[in-house]
């Protein structure tokens, strides 16, 4: 392993859990996803990016929400992409196998029964949910080239670890990869306004949701 990658593996924070921050997931369920579903009703296509996915719980939580609340989901083309700077966590996310403490944290038991299968002391994400998600290693501060256009970008609990220059660069990339009528989601204590005017707060949901501004 290159020294640079080894250092980034060691320095990265992997704290996460299923449905982390209830306010965010309530707003996703009640406001954001219904809007996106309505807007994409004719194309029946949704692209979602969990931009710092860590061990994958955020991506799988969104997949569960869609399974629960999207009528006729089998007619939709849905892809959830998870990216993370750490190869180890990307491999962990791809595996989709979680321990008892991990499934204990934030995941309603009915969803555990519905979307995961127990194998001794591990719980495995079921194949249909796993098939909705792709994971890949990426350093977002270096390049987002090759990523598609997304309808929803979750960039939560990342910005406060970065310096101003990197925050600006990352938000610019998020703007580039976000559909004009899509949504950006930040963490509960993060703001897009402090480094860029590319996004405006979305007033119909919690203040951590943003819409892209049009660049003239």
């Amino acid at each position: 392993m290159h020294l640079y990658r080894a250092v980034s593996e060691a320095m990265t924070v992997h704290e996460t859990n299923f449905f982390r921050d209830r306010t965010t997931f309530d707003a996703l369920r009640d406001h954001i996803l219904p809007k996106l579903i309505e807007r994409r009703r004719s194309s029946r296509r949704l692209r979602i990016w969990s931009a710092a996915c860590s061990t994958g719980q955020e991506a799988y939580s969104v997949a569960m929400l869609l399974r629960e609340h999207l009528p006729q989901r089998e007619d939709w083309d849905i892809r959830i992409m998870g990216t993370d700077i750490s190869q180890q966590t990307v491999e962990y996310a791809s595996e989709g196998t979680y321990s008892r403490p991990e499934v204990n944290c934030g995941l309603p038991v009915r969803m555990l029964l519905r979307y995961m299968t127990r194998s001794e002391e591990q719980w495995q994400i079921n194949p249909d949910l796993r098939a909705m998600c792709d994971f890949q290693r990426r350093n977002l501060c270096v390049s987002t080239a090759g990523l598609p256009l997304f309808d929803l970008i979750l960039l939560r609990n990342v910005l406060f670890y970065l310096d101003s220059e990197c925050r600006t660069s990352l938000l610019t990339a998020a703007h580039h990869h976000l559909a004009e009528d899509g949504f950006l989601v930040l963490g509960e204590i993060e703001q897009a306004e402090d480094v860029t005017d590319l996004f405006q707060p979305n007033d119909s949901a919690a203040s951590l949701f943003y819409r892209p501004r049009k660049i003239v």
Binding site: N17, R100, P101, V103, N104, C105, G106, P108, V109, L112
Partner: peptide
């Protein structure tokens, strides 16, 4: 209504 498996952390109890 819910299910918490032992052993559990304080945070997992709070979240449940």
């Amino acid at each position: 209504d819910e299910f918490l498996m032992k052993p559990f952390t304080p945070e997992s109890l709070r979240q449940k």
